[in-house]
Design a protein around this nucleic acid. Structure first.
Length: 230
DNA sequence: GTTGAGCGTT
Protein backbone atom coordinates (compact mmCIF):
# COMPACT_ATOMS: atom_id res chain seq x y z
CA UNK A 1 0.00 0.00 0.00
CA UNK A 2 2.96 2.18 0.25
CA UNK A 3 3.12 2.56 -3.46
CA UNK A 4 2.12 5.83 -4.97
CA UNK A 5 1.79 4.15 -8.30
CA UNK A 6 4.69 1.80 -8.21
CA UNK A 7 4.92 -1.82 -7.30
CA UNK A 8 6.32 -3.13 -4.05
CA UNK A 9 8.07 -1.23 -1.30
CA UNK A 10 11.10 0.81 -2.30
CA UNK A 11 14.59 -0.17 -1.09
CA UNK A 12 15.45 1.08 2.34
CA UNK A 13 19.03 2.13 1.88
CA UNK A 14 19.10 5.53 3.49
CA UNK A 15 15.57 6.49 4.13
CA UNK A 16 14.21 8.02 7.28
CA UNK A 17 10.75 7.23 8.46
CA UNK A 18 8.43 9.85 9.81
CA UNK A 19 5.37 9.07 11.77
CA UNK A 20 2.34 11.19 10.99
CA UNK A 21 -0.33 11.11 13.64
CA UNK A 22 -3.58 12.85 14.34
CA UNK A 23 -4.56 12.78 10.73
CA UNK A 24 -8.10 12.24 9.65
CA UNK A 25 -9.34 8.76 8.94
CA UNK A 26 -10.03 9.84 5.44
CA UNK A 27 -6.59 11.15 4.69
CA UNK A 28 -4.70 8.99 2.26
CA UNK A 29 -1.09 8.72 1.21
CA UNK A 30 -1.83 10.64 -1.94
CA UNK A 31 -3.03 13.53 0.17
CA UNK A 32 0.13 13.59 2.23
CA UNK A 33 2.48 13.08 -0.64
CA UNK A 34 2.19 16.58 -2.13
CA UNK A 35 2.55 18.03 1.33
CA UNK A 36 5.67 16.18 2.32
CA UNK A 37 7.13 16.16 -1.13
CA UNK A 38 7.33 19.93 -1.09
CA UNK A 39 9.67 19.94 1.86
CA UNK A 40 11.88 17.12 0.74
CA UNK A 41 12.29 13.99 -1.26
CA UNK A 42 9.71 11.51 -0.17
CA UNK A 43 10.79 7.98 -0.83
CA UNK A 44 7.70 6.21 0.31
CA UNK A 45 4.50 6.72 2.20
CA UNK A 46 2.69 3.99 3.97
CA UNK A 47 -0.55 4.10 5.87
CA UNK A 48 -1.38 1.08 8.06
CA UNK A 49 -4.95 0.00 7.72
CA UNK A 50 -7.27 -2.25 9.56
CA UNK A 51 -7.17 -5.93 8.70
CA UNK A 52 -10.91 -6.32 8.97
CA UNK A 53 -12.45 -3.08 7.84
CA UNK A 54 -9.53 -1.74 5.88
CA UNK A 55 -9.98 1.77 7.17
CA UNK A 56 -7.06 4.00 7.98
CA UNK A 57 -5.95 3.96 11.57
CA UNK A 58 -5.43 7.66 11.64
CA UNK A 59 -1.69 7.74 11.11
CA UNK A 60 0.78 7.29 8.32
CA UNK A 61 4.45 6.72 7.74
CA UNK A 62 6.40 9.00 5.49
CA UNK A 63 9.88 8.09 4.39
CA UNK A 64 12.35 10.74 3.50
CA UNK A 65 15.58 10.34 1.69
CA UNK A 66 17.52 12.64 3.98
CA UNK A 67 17.11 13.40 7.60
CA UNK A 68 17.51 17.10 6.97
CA UNK A 69 14.43 17.16 4.85
CA UNK A 70 12.65 14.86 7.19
CA UNK A 71 13.40 17.03 10.18
CA UNK A 72 12.33 20.06 8.28
CA UNK A 73 9.09 18.46 7.29
CA UNK A 74 8.46 17.63 10.90
CA UNK A 75 8.72 21.23 11.94
CA UNK A 76 6.80 22.49 8.96
CA UNK A 77 4.08 19.92 8.66
CA UNK A 78 3.77 19.27 12.34
CA UNK A 79 0.55 20.86 13.39
CA UNK A 80 -0.51 21.42 9.83
CA UNK A 81 -4.20 21.52 9.24
CA UNK A 82 -5.15 18.67 6.96
CA UNK A 83 -8.74 17.92 6.09
CA UNK A 84 -9.75 19.95 9.10
CA UNK A 85 -7.42 18.20 11.52
CA UNK A 86 -3.93 18.98 12.71
CA UNK A 87 -1.55 16.21 11.89
CA UNK A 88 1.43 15.54 14.10
CA UNK A 89 4.66 14.71 12.34
CA UNK A 90 7.47 13.07 14.24
CA UNK A 91 10.32 10.69 13.63
CA UNK A 92 9.34 7.07 13.70
CA UNK A 93 10.49 5.45 16.87
CA UNK A 94 10.06 1.88 15.84
CA UNK A 95 10.39 0.42 12.43
CA UNK A 96 12.61 -1.40 9.98
CA UNK A 97 15.04 1.49 9.79
CA UNK A 98 14.70 2.73 13.32
CA UNK A 99 18.28 1.80 14.03
CA UNK A 100 19.47 4.21 11.40
CA UNK A 101 17.98 7.12 13.23
CA UNK A 102 19.76 6.27 16.42
CA UNK A 103 23.01 6.25 14.55
CA UNK A 104 22.62 9.80 13.34
CA UNK A 105 20.88 10.89 16.45
CA UNK A 106 24.04 12.45 17.77
CA UNK A 107 24.13 15.00 15.02
CA UNK A 108 20.42 15.36 14.42
CA UNK A 109 19.86 16.16 18.03
CA UNK A 110 20.88 19.78 17.88
CA UNK A 111 18.46 20.22 15.02
CA UNK A 112 15.62 19.19 17.21
CA UNK A 113 15.75 22.17 19.51
CA UNK A 114 13.19 23.93 17.44
CA UNK A 115 10.06 25.84 18.08
CA UNK A 116 8.22 22.75 19.19
CA UNK A 117 6.37 24.63 21.86
CA UNK A 118 4.33 26.46 19.31
CA UNK A 119 2.35 23.31 18.81
CA UNK A 120 1.42 21.06 21.65
CA UNK A 121 0.79 23.24 24.63
CA UNK A 122 -1.68 25.30 22.75
CA UNK A 123 -3.64 22.34 21.50
CA UNK A 124 -3.52 20.67 24.87
CA UNK A 125 -3.88 17.26 23.31
CA UNK A 126 -1.82 15.78 26.11
CA UNK A 127 -4.55 16.42 28.59
CA UNK A 128 -6.77 13.88 26.97
CA UNK A 129 -4.58 10.95 27.88
CA UNK A 130 -4.51 11.95 31.52
CA UNK A 131 -8.18 12.60 31.77
CA UNK A 132 -9.29 9.43 30.11
CA UNK A 133 -7.22 6.34 30.53
CA UNK A 134 -9.74 4.03 28.97
CA UNK A 135 -10.48 6.30 26.10
CA UNK A 136 -9.94 3.58 23.56
CA UNK A 137 -13.10 2.95 21.69
CA UNK A 138 -12.41 0.23 19.27
CA UNK A 139 -8.78 0.53 18.48
CA UNK A 140 -6.53 -2.41 17.87
CA UNK A 141 -6.93 -3.33 21.50
CA UNK A 142 -9.17 -6.12 20.40
CA UNK A 143 -7.21 -6.83 17.28
CA UNK A 144 -4.71 -9.29 18.78
CA UNK A 145 -7.55 -11.05 20.51
CA UNK A 146 -9.42 -11.46 17.33
CA UNK A 147 -6.56 -13.34 15.76
CA UNK A 148 -6.27 -15.74 18.64
CA UNK A 149 -9.96 -16.36 18.65
CA UNK A 150 -9.94 -17.24 15.05
CA UNK A 151 -7.32 -19.91 15.55
CA UNK A 152 -8.99 -21.81 18.37
CA UNK A 153 -12.61 -21.18 17.78
CA UNK A 154 -14.07 -19.65 14.71
CA UNK A 155 -16.82 -17.39 15.90
CA UNK A 156 -16.59 -14.11 14.03
CA UNK A 157 -19.99 -13.00 15.17
CA UNK A 158 -19.24 -13.76 18.78
CA UNK A 159 -15.59 -12.80 18.85
CA UNK A 160 -16.54 -9.15 18.67
CA UNK A 161 -18.91 -9.30 21.57
CA UNK A 162 -16.57 -11.34 23.69
CA UNK A 163 -13.68 -8.99 23.33
CA UNK A 164 -14.70 -7.23 26.48
CA UNK A 165 -13.99 -10.19 28.74
CA UNK A 166 -11.60 -12.76 27.31
CA UNK A 167 -10.98 -14.18 30.76
CA UNK A 168 -14.32 -15.84 31.13
CA UNK A 169 -13.48 -18.09 28.26
CA UNK A 170 -10.63 -19.85 30.00
CA UNK A 171 -12.26 -19.66 33.37
CA UNK A 172 -15.29 -21.47 32.14
CA UNK A 173 -17.37 -18.91 33.91
CA UNK A 174 -19.30 -18.47 30.75
CA UNK A 175 -21.64 -21.34 31.61
CA UNK A 176 -21.56 -20.51 35.27
CA UNK A 177 -23.02 -17.09 35.03
CA UNK A 178 -25.37 -18.04 32.27
CA UNK A 179 -27.91 -19.93 34.41
CA UNK A 180 -27.47 -17.48 37.21
CA UNK A 181 -28.32 -14.49 35.09
CA UNK A 182 -30.99 -16.39 33.26
CA UNK A 183 -32.80 -17.35 36.44
CA UNK A 184 -33.56 -13.72 37.14
CA UNK A 185 -34.52 -12.70 33.67
CA UNK A 186 -35.84 -16.07 32.77
CA UNK A 187 -39.43 -15.42 33.67
CA UNK A 188 -39.80 -11.75 34.36
CA UNK A 189 -43.40 -11.95 33.35
CA UNK A 190 -44.81 -14.63 35.59
CA UNK A 191 -42.15 -14.44 38.29
CA UNK A 192 -42.34 -11.48 40.69
CA UNK A 193 -39.72 -8.76 40.22
CA UNK A 194 -36.34 -9.73 41.74
CA UNK A 195 -36.36 -6.75 44.02
CA UNK A 196 -33.85 -6.84 46.81
CA UNK A 197 -35.41 -7.96 50.03
CA UNK A 198 -35.19 -5.09 52.52
CA UNK A 199 -33.34 -5.96 55.74
CA UNK A 200 -35.59 -6.58 58.74
CA UNK A 201 -35.59 -3.29 60.57
CA UNK A 202 -38.11 -4.31 63.11
CA UNK A 203 -35.95 -2.86 65.85
CA UNK A 204 -35.70 0.36 63.96
CA UNK A 205 -37.68 3.27 65.45
CA UNK A 206 -38.78 4.26 62.00
CA UNK A 207 -40.53 0.99 61.83
CA UNK A 208 -43.18 2.28 64.14
CA UNK A 209 -44.83 3.78 61.15
CA UNK A 210 -45.57 0.23 60.18
CA UNK A 211 -48.71 0.62 62.17
CA UNK A 212 -50.15 2.75 59.45
CA UNK A 213 -48.35 1.12 56.60
CA UNK A 214 -50.65 -1.88 56.21
CA UNK A 215 -53.51 0.49 56.33
CA UNK A 216 -52.30 2.46 53.35
CA UNK A 217 -51.45 -0.66 51.37
CA UNK A 218 -54.64 -2.29 52.24
CA UNK A 219 -56.48 0.61 50.81
CA UNK A 220 -54.49 0.51 47.61
CA UNK A 221 -54.83 -3.20 47.39
CA UNK A 222 -58.53 -2.92 47.79
CA UNK A 223 -60.45 -5.07 45.32
CA UNK A 224 -61.83 -1.88 43.93
CA UNK A 225 -58.63 -1.08 42.10
CA UNK A 226 -57.43 -4.63 41.71
CA UNK A 227 -60.56 -5.87 40.06
CA UNK A 228 -62.20 -2.96 38.41
CA UNK A 229 -65.48 -4.57 37.63
CA UNK A 230 -67.16 -2.76 34.85
C1' DG B 1 -22.68 7.75 9.15
C1' DT B 2 -19.14 7.38 14.40
C1' DT B 3 -14.05 7.19 17.12
C1' DG B 4 -8.62 10.01 18.24
C1' DA B 5 -3.84 7.27 21.35
C1' DG B 6 -0.27 5.34 18.80
C1' DC B 7 4.42 3.01 15.60
C1' DG B 8 4.45 0.02 9.52
C1' DT B 9 3.21 -3.73 4.43
C1' DT B 10 -0.13 -4.79 0.87
Amino acid sequence: MSRFGRSGPPPIRDTYSLLVLNITFRTTADDLFPLFDKYGEVVDIYIPRDRRTGDSRGFAFVRYKYEDEAQKAVDRLDGRLVDGREMMVQFAKYGPNAERMYRDDHRGRDSRRRSRSRSGDRYGRDRYRERDHHRRSRSRSASPDDYKRRGRDRSPSRSRSRSYSPDDDRKGGRDSLSPARRSTSRSPLKTPPPRKTPPPREGSPARRNDDRSPVGRNDDRSPGSRSPST
